[in-house]
Write a protein that binds this DNA or RNA. Sequence first.
DNA 1: CTGTTAGCGCATTCAC
DNA 2: GTGAATGCGCTAACAG
Lengths: 341, 341
Amino acid sequence: MDEGGPAPRRPATMRDVAEYASVSPMTVSRVLHDDPRVSPVNRERVLAAVKALGYRRNEVARNLRLGRTSGLIGLVVTNLANPFYSQFALGVESVAGENDLKVVLANTDEDAERERQLVKELIARRVDGMIVVPAGSDHAHLDPKAAGSVPVVLGARPPAGPEIDSVLVDDFGGAREATAALVAAGHTRVGFLGLPPSVWTSAERFRGFCVALEEAGLPLDERYVRRQQRTIPAAEEAARDLLRLRRPPTALFCANSRNTLGAIRATRQLAPETTLAGFDDFELADVLGVPLIVVAYDPRELGRQAAGLLVQRLSAPADRALDLLTRRIVVPTKVVRYGMS
Amino acid sequence: MDEGGPAPRRPATMRDVAEYASVSPMTVSRVLHDDPRVSPVNRERVLAAVKALGYRRNEVARNLRLGRTSGLIGLVVTNLANPFYSQFALGVESVAGENDLKVVLANTDEDAERERQLVKELIARRVDGMIVVPAGSDHAHLDPKAAGSVPVVLGARPPAGPEIDSVLVDDFGGAREATAALVAAGHTRVGFLGLPPSVWTSAERFRGFCVALEEAGLPLDERYVRRQQRTIPAAEEAARDLLRLRRPPTALFCANSRNTLGAIRATRQLAPETTLAGFDDFELADVLGVPLIVVAYDPRELGRQAAGLLVQRLSAPADRALDLLTRRIVVPTKVVRYGMS
DNA sequence: CTGTTAGCGCATTCAC
DNA sequence: GTGAATGCGCTAACAG
């Protein structure tokens, strides 16, 4: 293959190539730019030197000289282990790639302080922009207008305070529609399992749940509401609690997939006839053999849209990029029914 | 918060800060380094200027000057939508973070040509090292000894040719053990569903499958072998084929999760009494109510180990880093039984 | 304690 | 066609 270049310990520079080819660095630079004003002879020599030395242009230095930024965008997510975020990341990466941008990945583990730190580092590295799924509720450090001036797009959760572009799921609408489907099926005692109210998405879904009940003229029974489960075991336990009530709910709405999975485990044992509805679709939902209503959406599309917004801002005239109107895109949801043949 | 700095359109430079504070750039640099040899007065002035201008040190220029590399490592995976790779990425990210490295993410979509392109770009960006899940079988472009000289660690698939560090799963052992469990349960007609033989992991798993049969004195019936399914529907179709044979297999070994999921769908309809075993654990395996043997392992640990190897090489003396012995780490697997109470 | 000089690798002037 | 000079933003190594 490569005919055994001297395996340079310190990557070859343009000067190295120039010396090897007995030309000036400038000529090398021109060849690398396909500048036509280079004699064929020299072009050949340079190309040969490049190959011999295994030279690769240093994009970092190049960008510094050009005053361009890094060609990098930061992607800060809360939990890459969650399929939602990995699909989201995939969407971001694909659109970024199409626009000749690379993605620097960072995981906050839902730690707001870590997020601040990571954002600072990314800015110092001169990322051209950032896509952030914010962990906390204070978004001041994400304000593009503040010091740093880096375009930011928020994913899945809306900005609190500063005007920042965002791409959201129709949490409210999806929850409302799924709950309405439960009610339409005749259920009057519907339980709710969700994350703590401090998590915006879950709060919105709870709001959708409440509105759907209200629209059906059903009361909201707080004994049927559990909003503290962050893990599958916790969700299972909470679901058990509800099912053990003297008048248990006949249906459960679960505000995220972890709660849905916990509820599935609980109902399977305690009350298999309970109808389940949940936010987030998941693999195997159709095979479970349990009647299940699911609020589905495309997390990858969410990522694509977020990257799209960012790219738009990046391609705006540099001095006006931050003056564009703040935009908010809401990705639709779709209610899917499984196992109710 | 930030008291309305002038929102600089072009990020402030050290010189801007120096002028604002009426000192030399050098003094600014020192303050930013916590160099004690700066008068408290000047330190205050600089700090004030930094805040007023929203200055952030340009790490790119800094690294260029220091001759350091980027502090970035490249992570090239084949399919981030696959939970395996997202967990893998998470493991890489966590260890990288602990070592003050950031991760540049790239997805090849199993396209070897795209991989070559991405690897080139990453090298041009002067990543300090790369972790790659190779898509093709030609790994010449990944050889650290070739031009480029960037340390590389391969994940999940071993190097073909060049000597490259790698972190692998015990594909052979896991498949052999799971198959043996099937045989021990009395099955004599065991089918195999897998990816094409060109995929190394799947080939290894097939090898484990074959050896287990051989060790049990069972013949390998090629009519029970299907090795072309890359998607869940294709796997389901292949499983149906096997189950429709006049003497169908009584158990199936599935070489990856997509084949397992397809097989579950097929058996559920056609032959619920079929015993299933599969490589890769997955969520809800316990809830399916189907007897299931699973080969489990920790993809996050795989990522951690890969990053660990890379970090080791990066911290070796620069001129000797490439001379270390090539290492290969094999992460163990564990056979788990579900629904066979 | 502080400033000046020089240069990391590259590319845009502007000369020849 | 080609090359020399200059500077991107930053910081070691020297002066002062």
